[in-house]
Amino acid sequence: MSPFLAYEDKGDKRDTDVSSRVPLVLVHGHPFDRTMWAPQLTAFSTDRRVIAPDLRGYGSSPVTPGTVPLARHAQDIEELLDFLGVDSFVLAGLSMGGQIAMECYDRFGDRVRGLVLADTFPDPETPEGRRGRRAMADRLLAEGMRGYADEVLEKMAAPYADPEVKAHVHRMMTATAPEGAAASLRGRAERPDYRPLLTRVTVPALVVVGADDTYTPVADAEAMHAALPDSVLHVVAGAAHMPNLERAEEFNEVLGKFLTEVDSRS
């Protein structure tokens, strides 16, 4: 049976060096797709297996109208990894993808060897935030993605970011199906509080944030770092909400060191 999600699965599994290293699973944010991870797929698939799905409602994966909670996204990832025969892995997520990674850890944390939380936060939604996400979902269904993409582009990638990076971010946003984006916004509005979960994480964690991120400021990353029992915090200067694209070389260097540490423990 074919998996529900579209995905990239890179790295030659027959290569001894690749198979001896812990696979890396990359979970994109909203409203993006798996091409968000292009620099990481290129950099890390030379010596390990790297898997990057399109979440339900994004990229080439099917759209489910209505409401798609974070738990549904986590279940989709679990089912994909079962299909691919990936028993243990490092799990990395950015923004909404980070919240999905936390949900995944809650559901099947015994399979996670390392956790990477980038430009995200664990707090539950506020009443005002719930109203705002539901209103945005309605707006996207009524107006489409372009107006929203134009408005938030320079909060996603900083105004000073490389024009090619900004163009890539804008393309991903405008290519997203409004129905898929709206369904995840409604689901995200109902997310649980992941702060207690962080204190129970038993694997090494890496917390990364862009210094100029206004969606998830450095203070949010510092709070996660403080809550996690075994974590490293890295602040990427010269980046906003998407340091993996804006400062890909630095992001990859930090992630690479973390993966080497996880490999050594495994």
Rank of each mutant, 00 (worst) to 15 (best):
D82H: 07
P62N: 07
A71H: 01
Q99V: 00
G66F: 10
Y58T: 09
D54I: 03
G66S: 12
Q99K: 09
R56V: 02
G97E: 02
I51G: 01
D76A: 02
I100D: 09
L70Q: 05
D76N: 05
S61P: 05
V90F: 05
Q99W: 00
G57E: 12
E103I: 00
V50P: 12
S60D: 15
V50Y: 07
V68N: 09
M96K: 12
V50K: 12
R72W: 06
E78C: 09
E103T: 01
L70E: 05
G98V: 03
D82A: 04
P62M: 03
V63E: 06
L84H: 14
L81M: 10
G59S: 03
P69G: 09
A52W: 13
F83Y: 15
P53R: 09
L81R: 11
Y105H: 06
Y58Q: 14
G98T: 06
Y105W: 07
D82S: 10
F83N: 15
L91Y: 14
R107L: 07
G93C: 07
R72F: 02
V86W: 15
S88Y: 03
G93H: 04
D76R: 08
G98N: 10
T64V: 12
G97K: 07
L55A: 06
S60T: 07
V68C: 11
R107T: 01
A74K: 01
D106N: 12
P69L: 08
Q75M: 02
I77D: 04
V86I: 15
F89Y: 15
S61T: 04
D76W: 03
A92I: 00
D106Y: 04
V63Q: 09
L84R: 14
D54M: 05
A74G: 04
V50N: 11
G93S: 06
G85Y: 10
P69I: 06
A92C: 09
G57R: 07
E79T: 10
E78K: 13
A71R: 08
S95A: 15
M96E: 13
T67I: 13
L94T: 08
A52G: 08
E79Q: 14
F89A: 12
P69S: 11
L70F: 04
M102W: 04
S88A: 11
E103W: 02
G57I: 08
S61Y: 03
G85D: 13
T64M: 11
L81W: 03
F89P: 12
Q75A: 07
A52F: 12
P65W: 11
L70P: 01
V68R: 10
P65I: 11
V50W: 06
M96V: 09
A74H: 02
G59W: 02
R56A: 06
F83H: 15
S60F: 08
L70W: 05
L91N: 09
G98P: 04
Y58H: 15
I77N: 03
D106T: 09
F89R: 14
